[in-house]
Design a protein around this nucleic acid. Structure first.
Length: 492
RNA sequence: GGUCCUAUCGUCUAGAGGCCUAGGACACCGCCCUCUCACGGCGGAGACACGGGUUCGAAUCCCGUUAGGACUACCA
């Protein structure tokens, strides 16, 4: 690692919701900066006016905040290398483009998009290499004058040497050699005065002192041109690392039909940001040990480029679900109760303005349901029968277990009413357990045969936390009511 | 078509010439725990894309093939 301060950036374009792949790029850059005590900048590359989506800026920032990624320079926080919106740096790009033209390293091109389209079509038809033919480089002085006088639109093109080769040093792949003749003269400045990615990116990375560029692999093919641009300006290029792309589960490009592609969707699906962060961290990087669970603090101590893989990764949501469950289980009762609140309020199980006693009750339920949650919204179905005052009596079909008949079931319910009535008002687990196990012995039934109808009677479900603690939490009064109601269903 | 990248269980991966009868995690299956569902524990099935080299020895190095993917815009 070089001796100068590490400065890295995440440079999204505000063209839509923050993509999940971009989020990983942001995480890697952030971690790298934090690991080496450097700076992490956020730069908004809004140079395409056609694709600009105003809401996406807020979505990008919100996605970063949600994942817990803060930036040292950029929107909202400023910094000494600003502005951090490329649309506010236009003169800069124009200045550098003009400079290259003056030095003969770039030239004006007046070709219309129609001509360019036709050129490309012809090249494809003739199976030639596709690329700009330098038509405008060979314009005579009078032709040039005429075009200028006519007010024809022009762009600035970078004049790439036809000879030689350019070596790109990629931190993950080593030295990559490109023949310059396979590179055509790319546009640096568009006819509307806005720069292309290539110009703006290089100028800004240089001016902002970026030392390491970690970006998606889709940029690899244009990196030799970027290197050539650095050379043309006489600037030292940063280190490059091109991160492998995310693939859809079956291979192929990750798209909508394979599930969520934006950070926002995962947020809306109520994934814990810690889980998404951890999941993304391990998609393309590994610590070299068997450790898989990482807090940000742990990760930023050991993250480095050395252990980033170069091969593409299939994005499969199953492991994310596992991480999510792990992180939910790791939350303490108070935190989990707080995070569950919005869902319970949404489901009408809690009031917007709940009392301390109500919250305390919810908190007391958490140990019963925590192990069973894979996602936050599931809290609703696992706690509804605790939080509801009344329970709609379950239907016969669900009340009567397989391998039992109606009269046996009724026998259990009636017996339980009697036995539980004897238990103290505290309804302690041990007391409830003694009563119910005693009932099983008395009825000469298996414990399960007694417990299952009761479980359904008090919860309406066949899967609940342990029956004793569930009864305890529901309380004697409601338990007896529900069992009596269920028994009535069987008698009707 | 051209240029480039990549290639270990279904998926994420360990592996940087002998420690590999290829290790871990998710998912899957079985058993245990057990009042159900989970959690947890134990076990199982499951991979070096193919073909040539180099070497005493290759998942590991080289070449080719194949397969995925990216780029090939006045989009990023």
């Amino acid at each position: 690692m070089s001796e100068k301060e590490v400065r890295v950036r995440f440079a999204p374009s505000p063209t839509g919701y923050q993509h999940i792949g971009g989020a990983r790029t942001a995480i890697y850059n952030w971690l790298f900066a934090r690991r080496y005590g450097g700076k992490f900048l956020l730069r908004i590359e809004d140079t395409d006016r056609n694709r600009y989506v105003p809401e996406s800026l807020e979505d990008i920032l919100e996605s970063m905040r949600w994942l817990g990624i803060d930036w040292d320079e950029g929107p909202e926080v400023g910094g000494s290398c600003g502005p951090y919106f490329q649309s506010e740096r236009l003169e800069l790009y124009q200045k550098y483009a003009t400079q290259l033209v003056a030095e003969g390293k770039a030239y004006y091109c007046y070709c219309t998009s129609e001509r360019l389209d036709e050129l490309r079509k012809d090249q494809e038809a003739n199976k030639e290499q596709v690329g700009y033919d330098r038509h405008c480089l060979n314009l005579t002085a009078s032709e040039l004058q005429e075009l200028e006088a006519s007010g024809a639109k022009k762009v600035v093109r970078f004049k790439i040497p036809r000879e030689g080769r350019t070596v790109v040093c990629d931190q993950l792949r080593g030295e990559l050699v490109f023949e310059n003749k396979t590179l055509d003269d790319l546009v640096l400045l568009k006819s509307d005065g806005f720069p292309t990615y290539h110009l703006a990116n290089i100028v800004d990375d240089h001016l902002m002192g970026i030392t390491h560029v970690m970006r998606g692999e889709e940029w690899l093919p244009s990196t030799p041109r970027h290197v050539l641009l650095y050379q043309a300006f006489g600037w030292e290029p940063p280190e490059f690392a091109h991160l492998p792309l995310f693939l859809a589960p079956g291979g192929g490009k990750l798209s909508k039909r394979h599930g969520a592609t934006s950070v926002r969707e995962y947020r809306e699906k109520c994934y814990l940001p810690e889980a998404v962060f951890n999941f993304l961290l391990l998609l393309g990087w590994n610590p070299g040990t068997d450790q898989e669970l990482f807090t940000k603090e742990e990760a930023l101590k050991i993250f480095g480029m050395e252990r980033i893989n170069a091969s593409p990764v299939a994005f499969s949501v199953e492991k994310l679900d596992w991480f999510n469950g792990v992180y939910i289980r790791s939350l303490d009762a108070t935190t989990l109760a707080k995070r569950a609140l919005p869902y319970l309020i949404g489901a009408g199980l809690m009031e917007e303005h709940y009392s301390a006693a109500e919250f305390a009750y919810l908190e007391s339920l958490i140990p019963l349901v925590r192990e069973r949650l894979k996602s936050l919204p599931e809290i609703v179905e696992w706690t509804s029968f605790f939080l509801q005052e009344q329970l709609i009596p379950p239907a016969k079909e669900i009340l009567i277990p397989r391998k039992m008949d109606q009269s046996q079931t009724l026998q259990v319910l009636e017996g339980a009413c009697e036995a539980l009535n004897e238990v103290s008002e505290d309804f302690l687990e041990a007391e409830v357990e003694a009563a119910l196990r005693g009932l099983a012995i008395k009825l000469e039934m298996q414990d399960g045969q007694v417990f299952m109808p009761l479980r359904v009677a008090i919860s309406g479900r066949t899967a609940t936390p342990g029956i004793f603690e569930t009864m305890r939490a529901i309380g004697k009064k409601r338990v007896l009511e529900r069992i009596a109601n269920a028994a009535q269903v069987l008698r009707d």
